[in-house]
Design a protein around this nucleic acid. Structure first.
Length: 451
RNA sequence: GGAGAGGUGGCAGAGUGGUCGAAUGUACCUGACUCGAAAUCAGGCGUAGGUGUAUGCCUACCGUGGGUUCGAAUCCCACCCUCUCCGCCA
């Protein structure tokens, strides 16, 4: 969320910055709401002040045993007008809030201007692209002999799920363990285990709600009848839904990234200055509906409804956040370097960044079968955008509460890393060499072969 | 699933419907005393918002949302959360 004070004082400037990311801010609408808010709030507070002072007089008069009927009649006439003013104020404030919640973050001044991913800026390329003296296979072809089974996953669940067996399942686990160990032992992160089902308030805090609900899996709790049942006359019914119950419980959402539960750890908290930066790493599954991505990456495990990710999160002092972003990016890069995977770092342009980010670096890993770099990590500085939504603050040197900055980045997406390992370490016979750093996690296994 | 207890300021903990934004203790900050510290004494110490050049003034907030009332931390309703006991359970 943007600072409403800044919008009040600097509206044209902020609108122009938002325009660089392709967002049109309706400034006239904002100004109209804002002036309505101002007059309504002033009027409401005047009436409240009058009610309060008069009511106090009644109390004092009664204490002395005086007659209060005249004064009570006076304040009674306030009632309707005050109630109406309060309702109006509530309406205009929630309208402002709703408007504010769907405005994206303003890009940092050093973010390259552009409309789409073609305008992103390549920052560096690291590692050398492997040369193969045979026809490279993609991870799907390679995996089918090694334990990567999409058919069974489709039977169990549906499209965009995968099932790993044997050495590949272990490789998947090894990657996650290796990443966690590296970040905790070398980069100073504290490992956390977090809930995978979160409430709407947490989703709002990091910016997934209210605008991107269609990307999420929503899990109803109490509130509906089951979706399957045997009807009274003995017929099996599927997809049955009753009318909603009178008092439904708040729904949960499956996390689309560990960013949500981990960053929300500091929601509604005031952390001590000396505790900053807080650095957390979590290995979690991520669940995404992939609504709107029909037909994209349908083959293989690049784009799944469920995938694992090791996520880095930092809660950091505002003056240190850009420094912190470079460090966090480096922490993610370390994983690729140690795995010996070639990659490049891209700075996203204003038009390609996510809703909440002020600056984002993507790390793209080389996939030989696609002959392309593909995103494997996204590292962002959200500045105070998420902190403002979460009311996540620290006590500054003057002892006053001030919003923290939040950073996060994948370190890395486990499924895509597995794809990259398979494709980059493949051999002519269809086997895959296990990267050196993973072997201790694989019981010393050096090559994954068809069983 | 059944029965009960409770949610108040950083923490602890009071609060007959009427100067309660809230006693008191503790922590913290400032000052006094001291060579210094401890102890003691005095003062200060919530968050958000509005308004004004300004000392300031005003509004909201006692789990959340409604309601009753001229007036609600206090009364009523619903919900959320925590804890205890019983049952079930990985």
């Amino acid at each position: 969320m943007l600072d409403i004070q800044a919008l009040r004082t600097d509206l044209p400037v902020i609108a122009a910055r938002l325009a660089t990311r392709g967002f049109v801010l309706d400034t006239a609408h904002f100004q109209k709401l804002e002036s309505h808010r101002k007059s309504t709030q002033t009027r409401t507070q005047e009436l409240q002040a009058k009610r309060n002072s008069t009511s106090k007089l009644i109390g004092q008069a009664k204490a002395k045993g005086e007659d209060t009927s005249a004064i009570m009649a006076e304040v009674a006439s306030l009632g309707d007008e005050l109630k109406q003013a309060e309702v109006q104020l509530g309406e205009v404030q929630s309208a402002l809030q709703q408007l504010l919640e769907v405005i994206p973050n303003t890009p940092h001044s050093t973010v390259p201007l552009g409309k789409s991913e073609t305008d992103n800026l390549e920052v560096r390329k690291v590692g050398s692209i492997p040369a193969f003296d045979f026809a490279v296979k993609d991870h799907v072809n390679l995996g089918e002999k090694l334990g990567l089974d999409f058919d069974t996953a489709a039977k169990i669940s549906g499209a965009r799920f995968s099932l790993l067996k044997g050495s590949l399942a272990r490789l998947h686990r090894a990657l996650a363990q290796f990443m966690l160990d590296t970040h905790t032992e070398r980069h100073g992160y504290t490992e956390v285990y977090v809930p995978y089902l979160v409430n709407a308030e947490s989703m709002r805090g990091t910016g997934q709600l209210p605008k991107f609900e269609e990307d999420l899996f929503r899990v109803p709790r109490r509130g509906f009848e089951p979706t399957e049942r045997i009807s009274p006359d003995g017929v099996y019914q599927r997809g049955f839904m009753s009318e909603p119950l009178a008092n439904p419980m708040e729904d949960w959402y499956l996390i689309p990234t560990a960013e949500v539960p981990v960053t929300n750890m500091v929601r509604d908290e005031i952390v001590l200055l000396e505790q900053l930066p807080l650095k957390f790493v979590a290995h979690t599954p991520c669940f995404r509906s992939e609504a709107g991505s029909y037909g994209r990456d349908t083959r293989g495990m690049i784009r799944q409804h469920q995938f694992d990710k090791v996520e880095l999160v930092q809660i950091i002092h505002p003056e240190k956040s850009y420094e912190g972003l470079e460090e966090l990016l480096g922490h993610a890069e370390t994983i690729l370097q140690k795995l010996g995977l070639p990659y490049r770092v891209v700075k996203l342009c204003s038009g390609d960044m996510g809703f909440s980010a002020a600056m984002t670096y993507d790390i793209e890993v080389w996939l030989p079968a696609q002959n392309a770099y593909r995103e494997i990590s996204s590292c962002s500085n959200f500045e105070a955008f998420q902190a403002r939504r979460m009311q996540a603050r620290f006590r500054n040197a003057q002892g006053k509460p001030e919003l923290v900055h939040t950073l996060n980045g994948s370190g890395l997406a486990v499924g895509r890393t597995l794809v990259a390992v398979l494709e980059n370490y493949q051999q002519a016979d269809g086997s895959v060499v296990v990267p050196e750093v993973l072997r201790s996690y694989m019981g010393g296994l050096e090559v994954i072969k068809a069983s």
